[in-house]
Amino acid sequence: MTALDENAVAPRDTGHEDYLRVLEAIQTGALQLLAGFPQQPSALRFQVGEVTVEAEWQATAPAPTPATTAAVPVESVAAPDSPALGAVVRAPSVGVFYRCPEPGADPFVEVGDRVQAGQQIAIVEAMKLMIPVTAQTGGVVTGILKEDNEPVQFDEPLFSYSPE
């Protein structure tokens, strides 16, 4: 056996790499497209090469009319981005909220943690697509508004924070 034979690299499975590249392209495109919508679409279809991914979301229930709304003291409800709640980080998609990078791991952040702009602080899973939730600006986490593994709606507040 020569030195060249010992250092030879096994041939790569290019089909597998191509598949991963296509999935990455779909994920990147989906995140960019969803970020550009003023509200969550009801359906989305991507096609990259021969791979097609389709996703549909149930329409969110319409807001209740004033006649069917129960009386709630104003002090007990804080409007999003209100002084009582502070700034919020919102869900980028309909899906399932995860505070940890994987089961059994420590959460990305806890109340009181200082975060930087762009730092990943959670995950929303939609159709097996893991969408990172990131801090828009630097600040301190003041509240975690959803439980781990809880379903969330598009644009729903997930964290409150005090921006710096």
Results as ranks from 00 to 15, higher is better:
2 T>D: 15
3 A>T: 05
3 A>Q: 12
5 D>P: 00
7 N>H: 08
9 V>G: 05
9 V>A: 12
13 D>M: 05
15 G>N: 12
16 H>M: 13
17 E>T: 03
18 D>L: 13
18 D>W: 07
19 Y>P: 00
20 L>M: 13
20 L>S: 07
23 L>V: 09
25 A>T: 15
30 A>G: 07
31 L>N: 10
36 G>M: 10
36 G>N: 14
37 F>V: 13
37 F>K: 11
40 Q>G: 15
42 S>V: 15
42 S>N: 15
44 L>P: 02
45 R>G: 11
46 F>M: 14
46 F>D: 01
46 F>C: 11
47 Q>T: 15
49 G>S: 07
50 E>F: 12
50 E>N: 15
50 E>Y: 08
52 T>F: 03
52 T>V: 15
54 E>N: 10
55 A>K: 11
58 Q>R: 14
61 A>F: 04
63 A>K: 12
66 P>Q: 10
68 T>M: 09
70 A>M: 10
72 V>S: 10
73 P>K: 05
76 S>L: 15
78 A>F: 13
82 S>I: 11
82 S>G: 15
87 A>F: 04
88 V>T: 14
96 V>K: 09
97 F>G: 00
98 Y>D: 01
104 G>Q: 08
107 P>T: 01
115 V>L: 03
115 V>I: 15
119 Q>P: 07
121 I>M: 03
122 A>P: 01
124 V>L: 04
126 A>H: 00
127 M>L: 14
129 L>D: 04
129 L>W: 03
131 I>W: 01
133 V>C: 03
134 T>C: 14
142 T>N: 06
144 I>L: 15
145 L>F: 06
146 K>H: 05
146 K>V: 13
147 E>F: 04
147 E>P: 02
149 N>L: 12
150 E>T: 12
153 Q>L: 13
156 E>R: 00
157 P>H: 06
158 L>S: 03
161 Y>N: 03
161 Y>R: 04
163 P>Q: 10
